[in-house]
């Protein structure tokens, strides 16, 4: 690991100042569960770490309408265990608890979870080419090992997926991200935090260098049955092949409202707007659910090794919605 200076930020403004003074090779440190590993692998090589884990963004604020303001330094385990989150936003708890291990959830922060990097094997192996890690070097995953990689929103330059479970639930919940910038604070819809790889996969997000995530806003509770379901290669402690965060409101046998987001299929948590639009007002039947899922996945452009994800995603969405319809009626 390359030597680095370590500094602890006193305030958000101080963190931005320290970042700006670092001449590019600066990284913010949260829980370190991804960044420290990437530094050990030689993927990340910051000359300066600015520790933001002790900034006063360690609270979960419960608003009068049941909405949340989650500090960026809140640990994943504390958020998942929060009584109000469990009662009013169980989808968020479920997604968090399906991610990583008990140890890692105790260490990982909410901000760090959003900004964790892809687990694409080529990105994590510095002996291999990778356009995300080393722009212009190529994407061997397209011809190589891409079984776990993207089927939506990828590009000829990169087929990486975003690995977060929490972000998939937050996408379904219409969460917004608070970002401290040099000239003030911005609030960005979670969906707009991430960007498509296009011809520049090196940037995962729309944040500018030095921008600091300080929190996540979650609107008032959905008040409809919701569930996070994750398919992976082993029963626990593995990243998603495909996951779904869904919520369904049924009235008089028809879908009044729904939320659907997919994980493991794209370089971002994938909000399935097309499926949602196809479903609203339709009969709450397994046939409608499958048709809506198929409408969403019609845009999929899989590679030979991950074509299995298309029917898997369709089946998963249809199964979860069918379960939710059973609970709703």
């Amino acid at each position: 690991m390359r030597p680095f200076a370590y500094e602890r930020a006193a305030t958000a403004e101080d963190a931005l100042r320290r970042h700006a003074a670092g001449d590019g090779a600066v990284a913010y440190l949260g829980g370190g569960t991804n960044l420290v590993d990437l530094m050990r692998l030689g993927v990340a090589m910051p000359a300066r770490l600015v520790d933001v884990a002790r900034l006063p963004y360690d609270r979960i604020e419960h608003r009068a309408d049941g909405g949340l303001v989650i500090g960026a330094a809140v640990r994943n385990s504390d958020l998942a265990a929060d009584l109000g989150v469990r009662a009013d936003h169980p989808l968020l708890s479920q997604a968090l608890l399906s991610g990583a291990s008990g140890q890692i959830r105790n260490q990982a922060t909410v901000g760090g979870n959003l900004l964790q990097r892809t687990r694409c094997p080529y990105f994590q192996d510095i002996s291999k080419a990778c356009n995300k890690r080393d722009p212009g070097s190529g994407c061997p995953a397209i011809e190589g090992d891409h079984e776990n990689l993207a089927i939506l929103d990828h590009s000829p330059e990169c087929v990486a997926t975003h690995p977060s479970d929490m972000a998939v639930a937050l996408a379904a919940l219409d969460a917004r991200v608070r970002v401290r910038q040099p000239d003030g604070e911005d609030v960005v819809p979670l969906e707009r935090l991430y960007r498509s790889p296009g011809d520049d996969p090196s940037r995962d997000t729309t944040l500018a260098p030095g921008d600091l995530i300080t929190g996540v806003e979650v609107p008032a509770p959905l008040r409809m049955p919701a569930r996070y379901r994750k398919v992976r290669e082993r029963a626990s402690f593995a990243f998603a092949l495909v996951s779904v965060a869904a919520a369904l409101d049924v009235s008089g046998g028809s879908v009044r409202d729904c939320r659907i987001a997919l994980g493991g299929v794209a370089p971002r948590p994938w909000r399935a707007h097309r499926a949602e639009d196809a479903l609203r007002g339709r009969p709450a039947t397994p046939g409608s659910f499958r048709a809506a899922a198929e409408a969403e996945l019609a845009a999929a452009d899989p590679l030979p090794g991950n074509a299995y994800k298309v029917p898997l995603a369709v089946n998963l969405v249809a199964a979860v919605l069918t379960d939710l319809a059973g609970e709703a009626s």
């Binding site: 440190l29 420290v36 884990a53 385990s77 291990s101 008990g102 140890q103 105790n106 260490q107």
Partner: peptide, 21 residues
């Protein structure tokens, strides 16, 4: 998980924790 210790009372992977932090 072979490196698991209790850090401020909670289980944590010591390999992912920087001592300085």
């Amino acid at each position: 998980g072979a490196c698991t210790v209790l850090l401020d009372g909670r289980r944590a992977n010591a390999c992912l924790a920087l001592a300085v932090a």
